[in-house]
Design a protein around this nucleic acid. Sequence first.
DNA 1: GCCCAGGTATAAA
DNA 2: TTTATACATGGG
Length: 292
Amino acid sequence: MEYKYIDNKIIMSTFNSFDIEQILECGQCFRFEKLLEKHYQIIAHNRVLYIKQDISGKNEIEFYPCSKEDFENIWIDYFDLKRDYLKIKEILYANDIVMRDAIDFAPGIRILNQQPFETLISFIISQNNRIPQIKRVIKNISEKYGARIKDTDCFAFPTLSQLLRADIDGLMECRSGFRAKYIMDAVQKLNDESVNINAELSTYDLKRSLMQIKGVGTKVADCVLLFGFGRYEYFPTDVWVKRIMQHFYFNNVETPIADIHEFAFKRYGELAGFAQQYLFHYARQFPDTFLQ
DNA sequence: GCCCAGGTATAAA
DNA sequence: TTTATACATGGG
């Protein structure tokens, strides 16, 4: 990975496994807006960042406005730029025909390292919901309870102490629906420390803690662990396989892979969920690779 | 109007 | 332990 800093902008040479469209549109994060083809605005870490990936063959990605310090201290980690996805994909490619097609379909996906609290609330909102609506609710909550980001019209996602000022009615006004009570439960339990989700905990304990929050089940917990805590090593893969099989195929065991395959590739979001499942699966089989 | 959304809590079998 | 249903909201 090579990059240079010019005029409050980072210009990075494109390298394997970085496609900003695939990264953002695959269902792992919600605070982004598409401006043009492979040109996005994201809000994270109290900052508004624009990412423009060259589509004319120059193999460059621009991040702006961005200081050298922010790039090195925040965005390298956020975009997981130090992990060797090429190596991971080689192993997946050699060992699974479905992951092979998933990689061919979207070779540029990376798993973002997002902020835990925001990730938790976001995936509580995600349940029984669609991405445009999830994005809308998160934006509403940010504008109502979060702080304005300096020199912009954008609002950061509220901190825990900022969300303590929220109530059910206020969250309903943000169109969060029946999830408002779950958000309140999360905020209260984290605040009075009846639930502890600090990064020191083992993945197992972290998952148990997360699931003490109302509205956090297996799916939400696993997404928070993966996207918010960078944990992928001990997931109950068999549960995921069963859930997927039950959800889409019930008891049809004749050609499940082909059917899953067809469904999974219809949209990025479905691919992402599917890829998550397989990442869990392979992460467990090849922990050394995933743990760098 | 009716159906549904990569979910979860709850009640009931 | 497993299975059916409600849930707020908005879009097809």
